[in-house]
């Protein structure tokens, strides 16, 4: 059974932002969500995590309609990292500990603290674990936010433009970290991203959105000169580099 099944999802504010979106996602798959600003990428992610309610259609996780899943149970299955995160005056340790919220009953247990310490080591955050999150650089803070989401032990991780405010080094570092960790834990990832080359380097599948509808969905074969022209109105060259594709702007 597919992990996520999206069935004819429609969403509108004043006009339709998402139109008849249907796709499936298997366990451990890394999907990049591509499209210009306003194509509906963030709106789709927010519908998947139930921040927004669709006009019609449904989302199923392991065959269960998400509308029937409780708040905490939902948080154990899907973690979502927003595009805009607020750095608060809390240590990195405490910030990641908040990610254990879906598993916390009355108070955090040894198991919760153990998981936080595991993530700190795994993601290489030891050097600033006791620093306040609001004093970190953009790249460091993004890793902490990721660690907080991973602390939920989700089956699915949704990332809304996690690399948009980072330099090239940190963009690659964050994507590599997500890819490696999620591959190891068999977590499925849907990441909304603007850098197509970064997406090509780390993703298994690509979901191209145009005007709120799916233009194409599939492996790297869907990234073609034609599809980029249609979705981005850009003229590019698509080259093969080893076993990966890269695109060059003409």
């Amino acid at each position: 059974m597919d992990l996520i099944h999206v069935d004819r999802l429609n969403f509108k504010y004043n006009r339709y932002i998402l139109k008849n979106i249907s796709f499936d996602l298997t366990h451990g798959c890394f999907v990049s969500l591509l499209g210009i600003n306003g194509a509906g990428k963030s709106t789709l992610l927010k519908n998947l995590v139930r921040i927004l309610r669709p006009e019609s259609g449904a989302v199923y996780i392991n065959g269960e309609d998400i509308r029937g899943i409780g708040h905490k149970e939902m948080a154990k299955r899907i973690a979502y990292v927003s595009q805009h995160n607020i750095p608060i005056k809390n240590t990195v340790y405490d910030t990641i500990l908040i990610g254990r919220l879906p598993h916390i009953g009355r108070d955090a247990t040894h198991s919760d603290y153990g998981h936080v310490e595991y993530l700190i080591r795994k993601l290489g955050l030891e050097a600033f674990a006791m620093r306040d999150a609001n004093t970190l650089s953009g790249g460091e803070f993004q890793k902490v936010i990721l660690a907080r989401a991973l602390a939920q032990e989700p089956k699915i991780l949704l990332l809304d433009e996690p690399t948009s405010s980072l330099d090239i080094n940190n963009q690659a570092a964050v994507m590599r970290l997500v890819r490696e960790y999620c591959e190891e834990k068999r977590i499925s990832v849907i990441v909304s991203i603007h850098d197509i080359n970064l997406a090509l380097r780390y993703s298994d599948k690509f979901l191209l959105l145009k005007d709120g509808a799916i233009y194409d969905y599939g492996d790297a074969s869907v990234i073609t000169r034609q599809s980029i022209r249609e979705v981005y109105q850009l003229d590019v060259e698509v080259l093969n580099h080893g076993n990966k594709k890269i695109i060059i702007l003409n």
Binding site: H71, V81, S82, I86, I88, N90, D94, I98
Partner: peptide, 20 residues
């Protein structure tokens, strides 16, 4: 208190952490 901790990180984050 745990829900409030999550709310400090923004409403969307709190929602995704399972807070009503």
């Amino acid at each position: 208190r745990w829900n409030l901790n999550a709310m400090d990180s923004g409403e969307h984050t709190a929602h995704s952490l399972g807070v009503n």
